[in-house]
Design a protein around this nucleic acid. Sequence first.
DNA 1: TAAGTGTACTATCATTCGTAATACAGTTAT
DNA 2: ATAACTGTATTACGAATGATAGTACACTTA
Lengths: 124, 124
Amino acid sequence: MRSRKPIYEQLVDKMKELIMHEVLKPDEQLPSVRTLATQLTINPNTIQKAYRELEIQGFIYSIKGKGSFVSLNNQTKDIEKIASVMKELEKLILEALYLGIQAGEMIDLIHALDSGKKGGDSND
Amino acid sequence: MRSRKPIYEQLVDKMKELIMHEVLKPDEQLPSVRTLATQLTINPNTIQKAYRELEIQGFIYSIKGKGSFVSLNNQTKDIEKIASVMKELEKLILEALYLGIQAGEMIDLIHALDSGKKGGDSND
DNA sequence: TAAGTGTACTATCATTCGTAATACAGTTAT
DNA sequence: ATAACTGTATTACGAATGATAGTACACTTA
């Protein structure tokens, strides 16, 4: 029974969160494919698929024989990805407004996340 | 070759956009399952699946024997859905900030979409 | 009654997800 | 060179999902 979202995708989301929240620091080495597979009791191939996706999205980089590491990216130049995220954002904001969510509420959310990113980790 | 997103989901997204942009007005009748299936050259079951999803999400309502119609919703009370959208929004905003997108840019986007919703359709 | 509507069900096929086993390639330490 | 670790690639299989297809039922309207 898949919880409607593939395991490898869940893993990608989780890792992205950890990286963006700086729980995983730049250049920090990630658990190896086989190690993590053992820890999570899932197949190494599933981990590898997640890692590959994370690498494509620019969140990690892998070196054969050495391991996988968190990217240094803080300011990406990937124009395609930025455009894609902005488009998603527009869709979601429109839906939120349609649902009756106030613009101010969303703006507050942005400010909270933005200051939390600059000022440091005060809360979670 | 599926463009990585199911047809019925693409259809749901498309209809949601049309409804939110008020191209499809409240209480307006939608094409019947079979009619739309013929027009789009896809299976009636696929249309029905999309319509069912749209009904679950509160965008349309269907009456057996009569047809499917656009909901009047402008201010939903569906707390679960609002919470879900807010959570998605938070994830996406965080990723946008991580990519280097400025908070002000997102706020501008919100204002643009919000005024476009209240003031009427000046542009598209 | 007839023709339109939504809805439900079963069957079939292709694709994807996840697992499994195996192999290859590169790094590091011995 | 060897051993033990890393990432990567390939193939195979079973289960779940997406989409098609056909059929049937229930309701509304003329």
